[in-house]
Amino acid sequence: MAQYVFDRRRNNGPEDSFPPVFDSDLRSVASKSEPKPRKDRSPLDIRPIFLQPGLITQATGSTYIETERTKIACAIYGPRQSKNTSFHEKGRLNVEVKFAPYSCQRRRSPMHDAEDRSIAMAIHQALVSSVRLETFPKATIDIFITIIETDGIEGCVAAGSIAASTALTHAGIEIVGLVISCSAAIINSEVWLDPTDEESSSSNGTLVLSCMPALQKVTSVWQKGRMERKFQCMKACQNRSDDIHAVVGQALLEAAR
């Protein structure tokens, strides 16, 4: 049920509305089902990435990323003057994530909620050590991310970080290296990379690793749940990140031509 908040700034619908209930779902008992084995990729494969820098012409830099069903647009504005803040010797990185109301299985209210804040935090953490913030004191870089469709929160964080780092590069902002993220889940005590929503909800634990493959440095690790083979997971993520790094490099090169 969408929590009803009357908002005089928007067109409001009825007070209560519910997503449709399907007859077949009522009969089957909701249980933590075993994930179906993957059809078109092996556990250590990721979904194909489509990356297009420069679609948002109004922004300093921008990227659109699509990994099968996950679709994310990211725009960079700045560096521009920091408003309402005291003097900072270093620049600031501001990450805002917004879910489109139609991006999930259930409609999201257009207001901010806790989930987009935590994704913004995770992306900020992944990126902040890669940006040379000391080169623009008193200024802010705004990173705005709109999630058009999701298929798993882990995939969103990973794709969002890649998109934001690519957009920063496209904007010509000085960074020490491209940040690449990759997610993994433990399913049946096996490592599955880039889990979908269904897969990550049936796993015990998930992990998102962000790193700079060019420098062989990890920028952040975000783990949820119980994971028995986390180092094996991280290693697998890091190996796959090298491949994604090549994809991002190629996309940026083509956009520059």
Partner: peptide, 29 residues
Amino acid sequence: GVKAEIAEPALDAAGVGFLVPNVDLPAMC
């Protein structure tokens, strides 16, 4: 995107559904 949900109709329009259009101009655009 269009999302369809189910609700009880308004008292004064028992046989009519709802259409709720909204536009977002986010800081991104």
